[in-house]
Simulated assay, not measured.
Amino acid sequence: KISAIANEYGLSVDLQTKVWQLTVGQQQRVEILKALYREVDILIMDEPTSVLTPQEVDQLFTTLRTLVDDGLTIIFITHKLDEVMQVSDRVTVLRKGKVVATILTTKTDKPSLARLMVGREVIFRLEKSRLERREKILEVNNLQALNDRGIPAIRGVSFDLFGGEILGVAGVSGNGQHELAEALTGLRKSTKGRVFLGKKDVTNSSAREMNDLNVAHIPAERIRIGVVPALSIRENLILKKYRHSPFSYGEFLDNKEIEENACRAISDYHIDAPSCETPVKLLSGGNIQKVVLARELSENPGLIVAVHPTYGLDIGATEQVRQVLLAQRERGAAT
């Protein structure tokens, strides 16, 4: 029955694979299949397209229209205004936990919705200056690696990345992007090929070694990989550098320096939290991402590996993340 549902609605996924071995996008398909299998009357979807490609989103929307035509009621929660305009009949806007408007989709537009969402005008198209190519930061030659199931996921990837350059890696979820990011940040061993950071061979270096070489990693799964949810903001901000001065001396942590660092990060990155002692698990997705950005970018890294950096963020937080990455580009970082 599950196979029939998957085929009917175009939700392809390997049903014999363990869920932890699936990508985030594939796991989302599993959640949708679970709901359809239960024959629900009301389907609540919270950011279902966060890590899907445009083609996958179009396929999902075709599925949703079929479900609505069959009489299903869908509550579609998203920060993506294009999706709101494309798929909804009616829109309710929440800001800081309060309803600020409920309007027919045909009676509004993206700028108006954005203004309602964040309480100010939002810049949809960011300007970036033309930069001269700088020194080579990263060189990847014929890189190969396996996924968690032992199947080849990266098959001979090669590219160069220069300072002041942002390289986009596109593709349908589950086609090696996740494994590539992990291979570049020391979280996954490659089976063949070489990786050079500057002129240094860093092939199969550990995550700590890549951290010590000032490589920043902004993972797609901010809760599972990017932070320790039970720890406070100030503790999460020093996860990569607590062993070093000024945050430690000998075997002891310097709490004053740690707190001052947290206060600076909260101010610089506009992290909305009661205090630096607040557990990260109590923050919104956007504020958790700001904690990750503050930690990863505080040392002015030479290389930034960012995977879906605006995943699940509202339009205001998305604007800020993009501005931060463009500022790093202007500084000369490779992303």
Rank of each mutant, 00 (worst) to 15 (best):
V13E: 04
A230Y: 13
A4W: 14
Y269K: 08
V51Q: 05
T92D: 01
E296L: 03
M45H: 03
A153M: 01
I2R: 11
K18H: 11
C263A: 14
S88N: 07
A306F: 01
G285P: 12
Q323Y: 10
F196R: 13
E257N: 12
Y311A: 14
Q177E: 00
A327D: 15
P152F: 08
H178P: 00
M210T: 05
A273K: 07
Q289D: 08
R29H: 05
S245H: 13
V324W: 15
S112Y: 10
T73Y: 03
L81Q: 01
L180I: 09
K128N: 13
T17R: 15
T17Y: 08
R264S: 15
D89P: 06
T310D: 02
E235I: 00
K290M: 08
K1V: 14
Q16F: 12
A262L: 05
A114I: 07
Y37F: 13
G316Q: 06
P274S: 03
V305D: 01
A230I: 14
R222C: 06
P219A: 05
D314G: 07
N255F: 10
P219W: 11
S129T: 14
V118C: 08
E31A: 08
R120V: 12
D148P: 00
P54T: 01
A262I: 00
K110I: 15
L161R: 02
V140Y: 04
Q27G: 07
G168V: 00
L43N: 06
R208C: 08
E56Y: 03
V30K: 00
V280F: 09
Q328A: 13
L187K: 13
N204Y: 10
E259F: 12
N147A: 10
L237K: 06
R95D: 05
I137Y: 02
R331V: 07
A6F: 04
L64Y: 11
A181E: 04
R208P: 02
R125Q: 15
S275Y: 00
Y242C: 02
G150F: 04
R115Y: 10
A294V: 07
R331A: 08
A273E: 00
A207C: 08
V291S: 10
R120L: 09
T66Y: 09
G226N: 09
A262M: 01
L253V: 06
